[in-house]
Every structure is written in structure tokens, then in C-alpha cells.
């Protein structure tokens, strides 16, 4: 019996979210009195993989063939399935992100294993296996029971945090029995994000809404983002109007994020917007309308004109950092 953690390969590097999934997996394994192991696809140095041992992973299976450096949903599913069988895995944990969403549902069918996505805490009970997840875009929590012997869950990013548990992490190669030369899909081009902090990874986010009045007014918002090391985001009408790229659109129909700090500037706080940000640890709202619904979900609020407040806040952060 073991718990398997799927470790996404971020260009041969590990990220904080990997350690979070590892932390969760090893805590769960502890309660089930079995080891927590990990699988990583694609090339990564052992010195990097070893870090998983800091979060309770006792064995890491690496699938290093270059053919696994690019996500191929069907192929990756086959590999994880073979690991599950070889290692007698009973529970598989994915990150609830693009890659988890690509593989976990397929694996569920392949293994006839019930899948619950976006879980936010440890199971309520193990027998029967009952676990909480967010539903209705964050308006409620549901308890879901998995009725199959094998179980798959995906963990909402930034919901569990890091829990160190130093463990000897044995790194071994895993040779899957699959053919990597499937020609039905072919990557013909790539665009790599060059600058800035990726919204999905960001610990802090500064976000602008229609109250910013126009794309020409974004400088002070970007300035604040730079000073606090934040990614920038926006509400849907802002991206629909082309003031900002639709990559920045957060909310129910855009990106769903959970940074430690979310600063909403000139955003009214419509329910569809809040659906994408309500899991943020701390929300600051800057708005000139004291009745804006964003103040109902914010932890800190400032009433006033964004154009005037943003530079003052940036100055205050600079002073605080001693710059």
C-alpha cells in the first residue's frame, strides 16, 4: 500500500506547489500508515528531486526519457497507471492545475478509481473515504465519498501549505512500457512566457477593474505590483475591452487563483469575479464606492480614488522596505 504524489516538472525544476502536494501526500500516508512516493515525468537532476524528501517523500520514481518533457495526456496517464500497479498504490494525488486536470480524469477511467478534484483539506474519514471540496465556484463546500477501492484526488493550490518532514528519499528510474512515438498529435510551435511573474504561481496579485478608467492608467498599478513582487490581473470587462490581455482575466470564467495577497483596485466584486479569487488568504479592496460588494469579501478596505491611492501605497511599501 502506498500514496502516490504526481510531481509536475516545471522545466526541470520543482516549485512550491510541488512541495505542497508532497506535504499533503505524506500527511495522508501517515494517517494511512503507509509510505508516500512520488512520480516525476521528464528530465530533472537528482539533486533537485532529493528536495522532495524534505516533505516526507520516501521514494521518487523518475521517468527521464526526453519524450516525457512535453505533456501528452494519454501517454502520461498510461505511465502513472503502470506506477500505480507496480507500487501497489491506493491513493493518487495530483495538483489541481492544468496538468492535473489533463491526467487525473483519464486515470480515473483507466483505473476505475473515483476522482475528486479541488480538495482543500485532509479527508474527513478514511473508511469510508470522505473528503471536502469546493463547489458552486466557491459558494459552498461539499463532502464527497469515494466508493471505489482506488482513489484519486487533486489538491487545490495554496490550500494546505508546506509541512516539512525530513525523510530519506530514494530516487529510482522507472521504465514505462509505452510507445512514445504516437503521431496523432504533434507540437508545431511554442511561445514561452518571458517576463513577469506567472499569475497562477504568484504569491501576490494586484488586479485592476473598470474603475481604473482606461489602459493608460495602469502604470501605478504595475509599479505597485513590481514593488511587492506581484503578478498583475484584471476583471473580465477589462480584458473584454482589450485594456489588458485575456491572460490576466481572473474569475469564474477566467483564471482561478489563490494567492496570499490579492489587491483589487476599482473592482466592484461581482459574484463571478469573487469566484476566482475568494480562496486568497488576504484580500485588499480599493474602491471609491463604499457600498461596493468587494468590501464584503475583503479583509482590508480603502475608500477613494485608485489613481491617488496606488502611488501612496507604493510609497508606503517602499518606505517599509527601507528603500
Amino acid at each position: 500500500m502506498s500514496v502516490l504524489v504526481y510531481i509536475q516538472n516545471f522545466g526541470s525544476k520543482l516549485k512550491k506547489q510541488n512541495f505542497e502536494v508532497a506535504s499533503y501526500g505524506s500527511k495522508l500516508a501517515e494517517s494511512m500508515q503507509c509510505p508516500a512516493i512520488a512520480v516525476v515525468m521528464g528530465t530533472m537532476e537528482d539533486s533537485e528531486l532529493e528536495k522532495l524528501g524534505n516533505y516526507g517523500i520516501s521514494k521518487t520514481l523518475k521517468v527521464t526519457d526526453e519524450g516525457f518533457n512535453t505533456l501528452i495526456n494519454k501517454l502520461f496517464t498510461q505511465v502513472v497507471q503502470q506506477v500505480v500497479v507496480q507500487e501497489k498504490v491506493t491513493t493518487v494525488i495530483f495538483p489541481d492545475n492544468n496538468e492535473g486536470k489533463a491526467i487525473a480524469p483519464r486515470l480515473s477511467v483507466k483505473l476505475n478509481a473515483g476522482f475528486v478534484s479541488g480538495v482543500v483539506s485532509m479527508p474527513v474519514t478514511l473508511e469510508p473515504f470522505i473528503i471536502s471540496k469546493r463547489v458552486f465556484s466557491g459558494k459552498a463546500l461539499a463532502q464527497v465519498q469515494i466508493n471505489s477501492p482506488l482513489k484519486i484526488i487533486s489538491l487545490a493550490i495554496n490550500s494546505f501549505g508546506l509541512h516539512e518532514a525530513k525523510t530519506v528519499n530514494q530516487i529510482v528510474s522507472f521504465e514505462p512500457k509505452v510507445s512514445v512515438d504516437d503521431q496523432s498529435t504533434k507540437i508545431v510551435d511554442r511561445k514561452i512566457h518571458s517576463e513577469g511573474i506567472s499569475l497562477l504561481d504568484a504569491d501576490r496579485v494586484v488586479s485592476g477593474g473598470r474603475g481604473m478608467k482606461g489602459p493608460e492608467n495602469w502604470k501605478p498599478l504595475e509599479e505597485l505590483a513590481k514593488v511587492i513582487g506581484a503578478a498583475t490581473a484584471c476583471s473580465r470587462p477589462v480584458s473584454d475591452a482589450g485594456w489588458r490581455s485575456h491572460e490576466e482575466h481572473v474569475g469564474q470564467t477566467g483564471k482561478i487563483i489563490a494567492p496570499n495577497l490579492y489587491i483589487a483596485v476599482g473592482i466592484s466584486g461581482a459574484t463571478q469575479h469573487v469566484a476566482g479569487i475568494s480562496r486568497s488568504k488576504c484580500i485588499v479592496a480599493i474602491n471609491n464606492d463604499p457600498d461596493a460588494p468587494i468590501f464584503e469579501v475583503a479583509d482590508y478596505g480603502v475608500i477613494g480614488d485608485a489613481a491617488q491611492i496606488l502611488p501612496k501605497l507604493t510609497e508606503a511599501v517602499k518606505a517599509f522596505k527601507g528603500e
Binding site: 495526456n73 480524469p105 469546493r134
Partner: peptide, 15 residues
């Protein structure tokens, strides 16, 4: 938008 599972598409493909 109800159960936020992100599952049906991947499952159909595997079936």
C-alpha cells in the same frame, strides 16, 4: 459551474 470537477472531457477521452 456547479460541481467544478474538471473531469468529464478527460474521462470521455479515456473511455
Amino acid at each position: 459551474g456547479d460541481y467544478n470537477s474538471s473531469s468529464v472531457g478527460g474521462m470521455i477521452a479515456e473511455f
